[in-house]
Amino acid sequence: MNQPRSSQRYQSEPPDDEPALLKQILDLVRRHPRFGYRRIGRMIQADGWKVNLKRIYRLWRREGLKVPRKQKKKRALGTGANACHLRRAERKNHVWCWDFIFDRTETGTTLKWLSVLDEYTRECLVLKVDRHITSEDVINVLAELFKTHGVPEHIRSDNGSEFVAQAIREWLKQIGVETLYIEPASPWENGYAESFHSRVRDEFMNCEIFENLRSARKQTDSWKEFYNEVRPHSSLGYLTPRQFSQQCISSSRTPSAFQRYTADTQLLS
């Protein structure tokens, strides 16, 4: 043919399912712009696609997709005795953590979220939003959680007024829950709560407009369900927190003091 071999190129043909696969990748990227190719790939595999991460990465690079990197300053880990890197959760319901996060409605009204997280399973047990949350509200939330999930051995928090309130400390002490207060001005010692709140801020609050409190509650419930049951978690081998939790042996317990508290509450109601 008088054609030099160097001028000939093999023209590859994409697999028949590639357009549909690419469409789903782009759809997931639009819905979850902060997810990388690994998490997107795991979600696609969970939907039934027989595809490996190398192929996802090839399409990802071809389409020029990427998650903008955030430059964060590094801080030395604290030396507080109750820091999360020193007193780690060893099983389900061993250590819970809680904290508050704030945002505003479309009209500027302040909203306050209370989150409670199981540090071992990363499952969000509560994500409650209201205009104001008092120490009494916190006790009521914990009481409902203890009825549903059992009583944890420890609960970690910062030194916020709601958490160090005398009523909460005495109530938890009576029930047999040890409070792990981190060092003042050391949020990195409550790292699991801080990490979870960064996900809440990045993937939920920065993407939603809250018209009012009622709307915020509905949106919060929907995102909490998505986080626990759909969103793959890299620290859990890309299982969802609910899937990982179901595989774990729980150390939940129901101390006699909490049983008496429950009985007294039912009598008063």
Rank of each mutant, 00 (worst) to 15 (best):
S6P: 01
S7I: 11
Q8A: 05
D17W: 08
E18W: 09
P19E: 11
L21A: 10
L21N: 07
L22Q: 14
L28H: 06
L28P: 06
V29P: 07
R30I: 07
R30H: 09
P33M: 03
F35H: 12
G36E: 01
G36R: 01
R39A: 08
I40S: 05
I40M: 03
M43R: 12
M43F: 03
Q45T: 09
Q45M: 12
A46F: 02
W49S: 02
K50S: 07
N52E: 07
L59K: 00
E63A: 08
E63V: 00
G64T: 08
V67F: 02
P68S: 09
R69L: 04
K72F: 06
K73T: 14
K74R: 15
L77D: 06
L77P: 05
T79K: 13
A81C: 06
A83P: 01
C84N: 12
A89H: 01
A89L: 07
K92F: 01
H94T: 11
C97D: 02
W98M: 15
R104S: 11
L111S: 04
L111F: 01
W113I: 12
V116C: 06
D118K: 09
E123F: 03
L125R: 02
V126D: 09
V126A: 12
D130L: 06
R131T: 15
I133A: 04
T134K: 14
T134Y: 08
T134C: 05
E136D: 15
E136G: 10
D137L: 10
N140A: 15
V141Q: 15
V141H: 14
A143E: 13
L145D: 04
K147S: 04
K147W: 00
H149K: 12
G150T: 02
H154Q: 12
S157K: 07
S157T: 14
R169C: 13
G176N: 13
V177P: 04
L180S: 06
Y181W: 11
P184M: 01
A185M: 08
N190K: 10
S195F: 01
R201P: 00
E203S: 01
E203Y: 03
F204Y: 09
M205L: 14
M205R: 08
E208F: 03
L213P: 08
R214K: 11
R214S: 07
K218W: 08
K218P: 00
T220C: 03
D221K: 15
F226R: 14
E229N: 15
V230A: 03
R231I: 04
H233E: 04
H233Q: 13
S234P: 00
S235C: 02
T240E: 04
R242A: 13
S245L: 08
S245G: 13
S250T: 15
R253M: 07
A257S: 08
Y261C: 15
Y261G: 12
D264P: 00
T265S: 10
Q266N: 13
